[in-house]
Design a protein around this nucleic acid. Structure first.
Lengths: 109, 109
DNA sequence: GTCAAATATCGTAATAATACGATATAAGGA
DNA sequence: TCCTTATATCGTATTATTACGATATTTGAC
């Protein structure tokens, strides 16, 4: 006897309609924020917009050099923006890129 | 002379209001999809829902073992679901988790 | 110019991710 | 049972990421 349950394969629940440079940028942003420390930095920047590197170093349990490296990854991915202010650097979320991210994610998921 | 432009620090453009297990799950999902090959697999599954591993292997320029590994990462992150069908495994997007992802991302960004 | 402060970069060690070939596993058919 | 098919897992080499201490760079104060 061949008992066979018919499996319904649903329509895809999202389009993922993206390609080329936009896809690359989005994947890079996903990757950057797909790290626990970097996600924490993002959260910190929400609560402390314009704070300087030292504030983040103070907040996190890792070395200054490592924080600087993570900030670089976030900056290069487009999540944050650094502004040199004297000897310090002040960081903010990169509003434009985040708006782009939001829009893009909403379009494809 | 001290010329000083006043820099306006904007309100944060997103809340990132998430923590604990939910944050971990989201970061894991970001990380999984933050890889070009895995993103391509996701796109392929949108166009070919219910396809089997072999279809994906055929489509991608990488070895079967590597594809299987990437599928495992996507499965463990909650992006996809595999169903054993005879000797093959059929893959679909994990609708519930994707819905959760969409909702969560919309809430925090 | 010299010094201190803040941050970035360098060099490097340790760990994790990625990829592959080979092999194991599980299911169906002869 | 034995063979084939499809996929997963193992072992391992290569590459990338993460972390650190040390050092370089940049700016402002004196």
């Amino acid at each position: 006897m061949t008992e066979e349950s018919i499996r319904v394969i649903p329509e895809a629940c999202c389009t993922l309609d993206i390609s080329g440079a936009e896809q690359e940028k989005l994947v890079t942003m996903f990757k950057a924020v797909g790290n626990p420390i970097r996600f924490e930095i993002m959260k910190f920047l929400v609560s402390r917009p314009g704070c300087i590197t030292g504030d983040i170093v103070e907040y996190l349990p890792i070395a200054q050099a490592t924080v600087s490296q993570h900030l670089k990854v976030l900056r290069q991915a487009g999540w944050i923006e650094g502004t040199v202010e004297g000897t310090a650097t002040s960081y903010c979320l990169h509003e434009e890129n985040i708006a782009w991210f939001r829009k893009r994610v909403n379009a494809i998921f």
